[in-house]
Amino acid sequence: MLVHGPSQVQALLDTDALTEALASAMADLSAGRASAPDRIAALVPSEKGSWLPCPAMSLRQGCS
């Protein structure tokens, strides 16, 4: 498994494109064109952390 630190993630992300994609996704969710289940989490005590998957689906992205 490859794990990136904060500075590596910042260097890899196109924050303008990310902002546009998130705005579009939130608009789809608000308009009922997307589905996002309630947040789920699994605790990982050995790592003193948790796993927080975020499944979602948007009709605009060609998924049906």
Rank of each mutant, 00 (worst) to 15 (best):
G5A: 07
L22I: 08
L29H: 07
A36K: 11
A21D: 09
L52E: 06
R39P: 11
L13K: 00
K48I: 03
A11S: 04
L2K: 15
A41P: 00
A21E: 10
L2T: 14
G32R: 13
P45Y: 13
M57H: 13
P45Q: 15
K48L: 03
L59Y: 11
A42G: 12
G62M: 14
G49H: 09
M57W: 15
R39D: 08
D14G: 07
P37L: 13
Q61C: 03
M1Q: 09
M1K: 11
S7L: 07
S24L: 10
M1G: 03
Q61P: 02
D38E: 14
A41L: 11
H4S: 09
V3N: 07
S35Q: 01
R60N: 00
M26T: 02
L2H: 15
M26A: 14
T15N: 10
M26Q: 09
G32K: 10
D16N: 02
L2Q: 15
L18F: 04
A42N: 10
L12Q: 07
M26S: 12
D38N: 08
S50P: 11
L12T: 05
T19Q: 01
A36L: 07
A17P: 09
Q61F: 01
S30D: 08
G5W: 07
V3Y: 06
E20Y: 15
S58M: 10
P53M: 14
A41K: 09
S64W: 00
D14Y: 13
A31G: 09
E20C: 15
A23V: 08
W51Y: 07
G49D: 02
L43R: 13
A11H: 01
P45E: 15
L43Q: 01
A23C: 09
G5C: 11
A36W: 13
S30V: 02
R60D: 08
P53R: 14
K48H: 02
A41C: 06
K48W: 06
Q10H: 08
D28V: 14
S24E: 09
T19C: 04
G62N: 05
A56Q: 03
P6N: 09
D16T: 09
A27G: 02
D28W: 15
P53I: 12
C54F: 12
L29S: 02
R60L: 01
S35I: 00
S30C: 06
P45D: 14
T19N: 03
M57C: 13
D38G: 06
R33I: 11
S30M: 04
R33W: 07
K48Y: 05
V9P: 05
A21L: 13
E47T: 15
A11G: 06
L18H: 01
P55D: 12
A56E: 01
P6T: 10
A23H: 13
A56R: 05
P53H: 14
P53K: 15
S35C: 00
D16L: 12
A23D: 02
P55Y: 10
Q10S: 06
A25M: 00
G62I: 12
P37R: 04
A21V: 11
L13V: 03
